[in-house]
């Protein structure tokens, strides 16, 4: 159903291209020869055991981590040491963190409007108007003038999503967005993400929510030991009939 509502254009160029990407933390080889292409409007779910490099990988895409080898091209801009390029890529990429990372000293409204006003130089009226739209979209317009400290975890994460969306990014990166939440709050955040996927946002989601992956993902990637072990559409990936890489099978056996 979801696949019907959005149209993945086959002829488009990939919006993210990674080629032979490597990264070390000191001696530790975190990411090994990652090569991946993400098409516009594609929803990519990355799963894998802890320490497999999932988070590091998506953090490399907006340069929160620096890769040491290989190429990353986002929306036609190559990620290099050029500060201007990094700034432009960050403008096109929204990110949602496991720990929300809202700015505690600003109200929800200021959290959301800060970047559009400072980076995109929007007028305050425009930014606030847009922020209210986004808050309505994530279902908490009434919280606009509260401080993050006054919100529940689920609400905070939805604000974080709204904050990321306020920059009107082309790509959204989710780094385990539901891991720090209580079970009943997970649903409200996932609903927002599903809705976002339906509208055709390009999304890279690191998560342990297999239900979400099965329902929303266009492609599921399994990572282990810094490598992409296996990838495929969710119906194949979660199917028992298709034979999996032994490591994938082991992982799937444990979580399903």
């Amino acid at each position: 159903m979801e696949a019907d509502s959005k149209q993945v254009m086959a002829g488009d160029d990939p919006i993210i291209i990674c080629r032979d990407m490597n990264k070390w933390f000191g001696e530790f080889h975190v990411l090994r020869n990652i090569s991946l292409e993400v098409m516009p409007q594609e929803v990519l779910v990355i799963i894998g055991p802890s320490g497999s490099g999932k988070s590091t990988f998506i953090r490399c895409i907006n340069r929160l981590e620096e890769h040491q080898d290989g190429t990353i091209i986002v929306d036609g801009i190559e990620l290099s040491h050029d500060v201007q390029n990094i700034a432009e890529i960050r403008r096109e990429t929204g990110m949602v963190f496991q720990q929300f990372n809202l700015f505690p000293h600003l109200t929800v409204m200021d959290n959301i409007t800060l970047a559009p006003m400072k980076v995109r130089h929007w007028a305050r009226d425009k930014a606030e108007h847009r922020a209210m739209e986004l808050l309505e979209r994530v279902g908490i317009p009434e919280q606009a003038y509260k401080y993050p400290g006054q919100l529940s975890g689920g609400q905070q994460q939805r604000v974080a999503i709204a904050r990321a969306l306020a920059m009107e990014p082309k790509i959204m990166l989710f780094d385990e967005p539901t891991s720090a939440l209580d079970p009943e709050m997970i649903k409200e955040v996932l609903d927002v993400m599903k809705e976002l996927a339906r509208t055709g946002m390009t999304m890279l989601v690191v998560t342990h929510e297999m239900g979400f992956a099965r329902e929303v993902a266009d492609r599921v990637i399994f990572m282990d030991m810094g490598r992409i072990v296996e990838q495929g559409p969710p119906e194949n990936f979660f199917s028992d009939e298709i034979s999996h890489h032994p490591r994938t099978q082991e992982f799937l056996d444990q979580i399903l």
Binding site: L64, R90, G94, M95, Q99, F103, L114, A115, V119, M167
Partner: peptide, 12 residues
């Protein structure tokens, strides 16, 4: 996290 969040939304 605060620094990262600020960078991620594009602040210099």
């Amino acid at each position: 996290g605060q620094m990262e969040a600020a960078q991620a939304i594009g602040l210099s």
